[in-house]
Nucleic acid binder design. Structure first.
Length: 278
DNA sequence: AATAAACCCAACCGCACAACC
DNA sequence: GGGTTGTGCGGTTGGGTTTAT
């Protein structure tokens, strides 16, 4: 049937966003919350596609985003989650507060992939690259050590679910999971041994839970006890008066613009979940 | 200092899917 | 039930920056 383009291509600006455009988008979302993205450009006075606005907001302007490279523990968690989920970047990102799927995807392609290759691990299948026995033994050691390390970052609560009858992963129809690519030989046994370590992780991953970020974004825990108003479309606040700080500080980490409270909240939440602080 | 190569990341594109009419 | 619309996701690319020669 053919899909209509998401927006009228004529007069729609593309390419890098200007500070002025960012300001308009931030002002609009802080005033109205996140609503119908297609309507955002028109209402906000932007000559952009709604999709582009959504991407700009979620990947760059959101105030709860962390900036900078992933930490070692975050990286380890990404590797472990990728081994289980494949390229489901949004699912992976949901487990890393303040990180976006785009950011994780980029980091995977530019850093982690190469790191794994250097370790002799196929970044797609997470299997050892070389088939001979000696290599197999060596890689098994490497992989199991990094898997165990990653497991230390996982919520303890996941282990409580380990007695679930059937893993959602087992029932999944997803073809992107690297586990399904392995054939029934020694290699698959190795991978199975790796993957069975944290079966319970999958249970928690497959549960449609509200991501931590959203919880924070929607929670009553607000910076400085600001006058937040929950409306039907999202969070509205008196930030409008002060939103220039967002524009001024978008290139810095949250610490740089007084949003430590978000981090505080995240860390508290991680504590509650029994997750390692990053 | 100039140029090429490699790296990095923001942004775009197209597809899938759910919701709606 | 089928068409349309809105949104989310993953893959890819363009171009700016950094590093090597």
């Amino acid at each position: 049937m053919g899909r209509q383009p998401c927006c009228d291509k004529l007069g729609v600006k593309k390419g890098p966003w200007t500070a002025e455009e960012d300001k308009k988008l931030i002002n609009f979302i802080l005033t109205n919350g996140q609503c119908c993205w297609r309507a955002v450009p028109k209402l906000a006075g932007l000559r952009r596609c709604g999709k582009s606005c959504r991407l700009r907001w979620t990947n760059y302007l959101r105030p709860d985003l962390k900036r900078g490279l992933l930490t070692e523990s975050e990286e380890q968690l990404v590797i472990d989650l990728h081994a289980r989920l494949g390229n489901r970047w949004s699912k992976i990102a949901a487990r890393l507060p303040g990180r976006t799927d785009n950011e994780i995807k980029n980091h995977w392609n530019t850093h982690i992939k190469k790191k794994l290759l250097r370790m002799g691990i196929d970044p797609v299948t997470h299997e050892p690259l070389h088939k001979d026995q000696d290599d197999l033994i060596n890689k098994e050691t490497i992989i199991s050590s990094h898997t165990n390390q990653a497991n230390n970052n996982l919520p303890q609560s996941t282990t409580e679910n380990s007695s679930s009858n059937s893993s959602p992963a087992e029932n999944s129809s997803s073809s992107s999971s690297p586990n399904e690519n392995s054939s029934g030989d020694d290699q698959s046994t190795l991978i199975d041994s790796i993957c069975n370590v944290d079966e319970s992780l999958m249970n928690s991953l497959w549960v449609d839970e509200t991501p931590l970020i959203d919880a924070l974004w929607n929670s009553d825990q607000v910076p400085d006890g600001g006058d937040y108003i929950e409306n039907g479309m999202g969070v509205q606040s008196n930030w409008e008066e002060n939103c220039s700080w967002l524009l001024d500080c978008q290139d810095f980490g949250v610490h740089d613009f007084g949003m430590d409270c978000f981090i505080e909240t995240e860390l508290n939440a991680l504590d509650t979940l029994g997750m390692e602080k990053i």
